[in-house]
Each structure stands twice: as C-alpha cells, then as structure tokens.
Design a protein around this nucleic acid. Structure first.
Length: 472
DNA sequence: CACGGAAAGA
DNA sequence: TCTTTCCGTG
C-alpha cells in the first residue's frame, strides 16, 4: 500500500502566478558522489529548507558563513521522513546521515553548539559544477571561507580564467556555450540559460546555485522549495548566512560562491553588458512582459537588503497568516480561492505554537529562538510514496489533479527546461534593466543580463542566443 | 547530544 | 552510493 508520498517533493506554497519552471541539467542531480542517483540527498533537502523562509522556525542560517542551526530537530527529521517516505525518521537517524557527510566534507559539526552544522559550500559547488575548475581557481579558493581562508579574492583575469577555463579572453561568448566547434561532453548543458542562478548580485541567494534546481521526479512542481529563479522576487532576502568577518563581499553576494565570483568579474563579462540605462523607477522587467501579475512583481529589482526588511517571499498567500495550525487543522482549513487551493496535504510546521501541538523543540527545550517565526504552513505533496510505510496515516494526504496536469515542456527529448522556444518569444521590449538593479557597492556586477534572475525568461533566453551567435 | 561502526535496504 | 536503522561509547 502506497503511502502516497512524493519522495522527492516538498511542495512550495505555489503562488497564483506560478509558472512552470525548468529542470536543471541532469548532472545537477548526479553529484559525483552519487552517480546515477536521483534521490534527493539530505544536504539538498537541508538547503532547501534553509532557503525557505517558511522553515526559519525549524532550521535557519545562523552564525558563521554556511552555518545553520536546526532549531527544531524533530520537525526537520519529520520533514525529512516525509520526503523520503520514512515515517520513523527521527533526529537521531537524520543526524547519523548528517554525520555521514563529515567524511565527505559536505558538512561538519560546529562544536559546542547544539544542532549546529556548517556547510562546506565549496564542496557542494564543486560536486555539482564539475565543469568549473574552481578547485584550482585562486579566485574561488580565496572565497572559500569554509577552509579558513579569508584572503582577498584574486580578481585577476588569470584567476577568472581559471574559474572558467573555457572562457575566451575576448569575453565574447564561450562560457557554457554550446560551442559549435568542439563541444565537450557536457557542452549542451553548459549554456548560460541553463544557469539562471549564475546571476548578478541583484539578489541574495541563500544557497549554492546548484541547489536551486527542482527534483526531476517532480515534473509537476518545478521548484519544490518554492524557488523559481525566473520569477522576480524569487530570492529570499531573509536567510542569508552571515558574512564572514572581514569579508570584502557585500552580503547580497553571499553565500553563492559562483554568484560572488560572477558579480565581481571585471572582465570579460562587463564587456558584454549593453550600454547603461538609467531606468528611473524601473523595477526589473517583471512588468514588461506582464508576467508577474502582482504579488511578487514588485520585488523584481530588489537588491539584497538587510535581513528581515519585511518583504515576503514570493507567492506567499495569506493562508495561515495568523496562528499556526496543527496538522489536521491546516489540512482541513486549507481555504479555497486563495491561489493555494492545491488540494494537497498541508502540514503545519515549526512555529506551530499558536494552536495545536506544541513544538517539539519546546518540548525538548531546544534551541528554538524564533517564537514568532513565519513558519506557518507547509504544503507537501504526499502522492508518491512507495510501499512499506505502514504509518502512512501519519502524513496528510490529498491530491489535486490540476497540479498533475501542469504543463511541461520537453527539451532535448527529456523532461527538462520549459523555456519557450525562441521563435515564440516576443521581441525585446527595451534594453535590460540590469543597470538599474545594480546594488550600490564596490563591486557592481558585470555580467551578461542573461544571468540575471530579474530578467524575464524570454529576454534571458534571447540574450543567451545572442551570446551564442556572437560566439559563433 | 554527538560520534562512528556495522549491517541492511534501495 | 546514500542513506536507514541500530547501538555502544563518551
């Protein structure tokens, strides 16, 4: 009997304006350490939770760069159990899995701090960006705070070149380009439009770019953690890890090493930028295509502001904006007509201390520090759990056919990007607004607009095509 | 709580 | 290979 979990799925609060996103290239799900595996990995999941504000009451960045605290171990374990269809998951088991990462240098434990771990982002990125020779890049190494280095990054062309070995000195295309001449085995996967997360510093990533992808087993939900780099306002501002002391980097460039790198590239990316445009009052291009209809559109041009500016994650509805609901209450109270009426199991999370059950952390007197966390609601698709989970009743289950039927484009014969074909794209409206989005900081990002998450899909796509044409 | 060995499952 | 499960140790 199926327990109806979608093992790799943790449904985000899908906003009304939700658009089918794209799938990340296959290799993004196949770290070298797990060849062939498409199962979500625990660290993937952890980062997913960390990325979402909804879970700040459960797990959050805290302390040093890459450091996070599991505020509610039981809840995290429970969520992990849901994801993996392991109803008997608990923190003891989860932590054992985390310990497994120590040897792999994906994680390590912050000694003396309960439930506190630290990511080795460089490892994470390296694992997922084998094509970027960051391991040998002085540029990257200089930013690897995890290994204790806090040296000033080497922004020399040589260093940058080492980061992107294929990048021609001319700066004209090349990077991740399909390459008409001698594409590598992954040539087709390295195009810029495949990496929207390699964006400008206009937004604040909260995790390595490689972790932004959806899970391929969830075709109906392209961004299980509610993250869509193509959507304006997709980048939460509230969960950036702290900058390392003495950091030379503005917070909006953390902790994404690639983003940090790209944002500071003086050359050759800067040469790809079109003439500056002073888009007075322009807030990104979200409105230009009429795409972001409302809620999140206004955040398009947002740069990374200090934490907790009061901004909301995209697409959050007013469901459960009051006291958190208990699990059953949440499920049954899932109100229609909110744009979130997905008919999916809704499970209350973390800060469920308003009504209903008591937080596990509170029970155990844990490290919970955020009594008024915004963690109200989780929508979890539980429709795909395979057998053997005798306790499936522990999970709230409801399905919604509408989601199953969500559109999905196919590229390269695979379930992949849902980027519209170029030919179907409307003509460019105006020069990209990247300039107007530049954060005021010592290192204005100089990257192709193709990389900006604030650029509409079609423009990014078009830009990428342009770059490829230039290159060829 | 944290750690890691061991065995087993997928 | 990546957990999951169990368990002894500190």
């Amino acid at each position: 009997m199926d327990c109806n979990c979608v093992s790799d799925l943790l449904l985000p609060p899908v906003p009304a304006l939700w658009t089918p996103g794209f799938a990340f290239p296959d290799w993004a799900y196949k770290p070298e350490s797990s060849p062939g595996s498409r199962q979500i990995q625990l660290w993937h999941f952890i980062l997913e939770l960390l990325q979402k504000e909804e879970y700040h009451g459960v797990i959050a960045w805290q302390g040093d760069y890459g450091e996070f605290v599991i505020k509610d171990p039981d809840e995290v374990a429970r969520l992990w159990g849901i994801r993996k269809c392991k109803p008997h998951m608990n923190y003891d088991k989860l932590s054992r899995a985390l310990r497994y990462y120590y040897n792999k240098r994906i994680l390590h434990k912050t000694k003396g701090k309960r439930f506190t771990y630290k990511f080795n982002f460089s490892k994470v990125v390296l694992v997922n960006y084998p094509i970027l020779d960051m391991a040998n890049s002085p540029f990257f190494l200089a930013q690897n705070h995890f290994n204790g280095s806090s040296a000033t990054p080497d922004c020399s062309p040589e260093a940058i070149q080492s980061l992107f070995p294929r990048l021609p000195d001319t700066g004209r295309g090349g990077l991740f380009d399909r390459g008409t001449t001698a594409p590598g085995p992954e040539g087709d996967k390295l195009r810029l439009d495949t990496f929207p997360f390699l964006s400008s510093g206009a937004q604040c990533y909260t995790k390595p770019p490689s972790l932004l992808g959806p899970y391929p087993r969830s075709p109906s939900f392209d961004y299980p953690w509610g993250f869509n780099p193509y959507l304006p306002g997709a980048f939460s501002l509230n969960n950036c890890p702290k900058l390392p002391p003495g950091s030379l980097y503005p917070s909006q460039f953390y902790p994404n090493p690639l983003q940090s790198s790209l944002s500071q590239l003086p050359h050759p990316f800067s040469s790809l930028l079109p003439p500056a445009e002073t888009g007075a009052g322009e807030r990104g291009v979200a409105g230009q295509n009429g795409g972001a209809n409302g809620t999140a559109g206004g955040q398009a041009g947002r740069i990374c502001l200090p934490p907790y500016p009061g901004s909301l994650p995209l697409g959050r509805t007013d469901i459960g904006n009051g006291a958190a609901l208990s699990e059953r209450e949440t499920v049954e109270a899932n109100p229609p007509g909110t744009g979130l009426n997905l008919g999916l199991g809704a499970v209350s999370l973390g800060a469920g201390n308003g009504t209903g059950r008591q937080s596990p952390t509170e029970r155990r007197g844990g490290v919970k520090q955020d009594p008024e966390s915004d963690s109200d609601l989780e929508i979890t698709d539980l429709s795909d759990c395979s057998s053997e989970n005798e306790n499936e009743h522990e999970f709230s289950i409801r399905k919604d056919a509408g989601l199953v039927n969500r559109p999905q484009l196919v590229l390269d014969g695979k379930k992949a990007s849902v980027l519209p074909p170029i030919t179907s794209l409307p003509p460019p409206v105006s020069p990209h607004p990247l300039k107007s989005l530049m954060p005021i900081n010592p290192h204005p990002p100089s990257i192709p607009p193709s990389l900006s998450p604030s650029m509409p899909l079609h423009e990014r796509h078009r830009e990428t095509e342009t770059l490829k044409m230039i290159h060829s």
